[in-house]
Amino acid sequence: MTKDLRFASSLIVTGSVILAVVVLAALLAPLLTGWGPEEIDPAAPLAAPGGAHLLGTDLNGMDVWSRVLYAARLDLGVAVVAVALAVVAGSLLGLVAGYWGGWADDVLMRVVDVFQAFPTFILALAVAALFGGGTLNLVAVIALVNAPAYARLVRAEVRSIRELPYIEAARTSGAPPWGILWRHVLPNSLTPVRVIAPLNCGWAMLTLAGLSFLGLGVPVPGAEWGAMISLGTADVVAGRWWTSVPPGLFLLVCVLGFSLLGEGLQERADAVRR
């Protein structure tokens, strides 16, 4: 194994371990805490860490540790599902547009242009404001704002793959158009998607947290990191760090995990190409 490949693998392994730990913590949340995420301890609003509440409680008397853990389910879940949807929808559109070209290509790409004319977050903000919050809406919004990038990426790949000799070889072998698309064009056009998607998951989490921070995301009292940070901002000024720092840290760690994974995949692709 070469040095570059080793470096790439170490990135991939580190990123994966970080994400695995967060996922495990989210899944095992009921075992790691006795409190429910929306359970209120009326006796102890804004309790400091320690005692009955590992990381203290927030303004409403809800357990911060519990909320942080349960929020991981939502944040990770929304990000991964939204990106998966974006990948599938964007790739299919890109595949069709790139392979057939013509008016379908023109129409699709102009729509993509319109989407990409707005900064992703502003677009997400506008769409979320239009359709309202809620988990399913958030998944749809994040998928929607990310899909155009995949459509464009895959289309560009398809355009160049379409002209390669092995596609001509498949045509002379008598393969039907959808067969060529499915068996030859699609697998070969997804190479860059594999690298971008994990990075994109990190960005998706930030988008979700950002929307919630601005009050357009998960409605109260849902456990979500962005919403928690938002709720805790006033406390930080008052010296009560525990309501907003833990969700911030979890968010940071997750984004870092996705970035390392994506970088590693990128490095590995580069190393293999060399």
Binding site: P165, Y166, E168, A169, A170, H184, P187
Partner: peptide
């Protein structure tokens, strides 16, 4: 009718 290509490796789908 079948074709044998000039570029032997390029005429094979890389992921197949």
């Amino acid at each position: 009718a079948q074709l044998v290509f000039q570029d032997p490796i390029g005429s094979l789908s890389p992921r197949r």
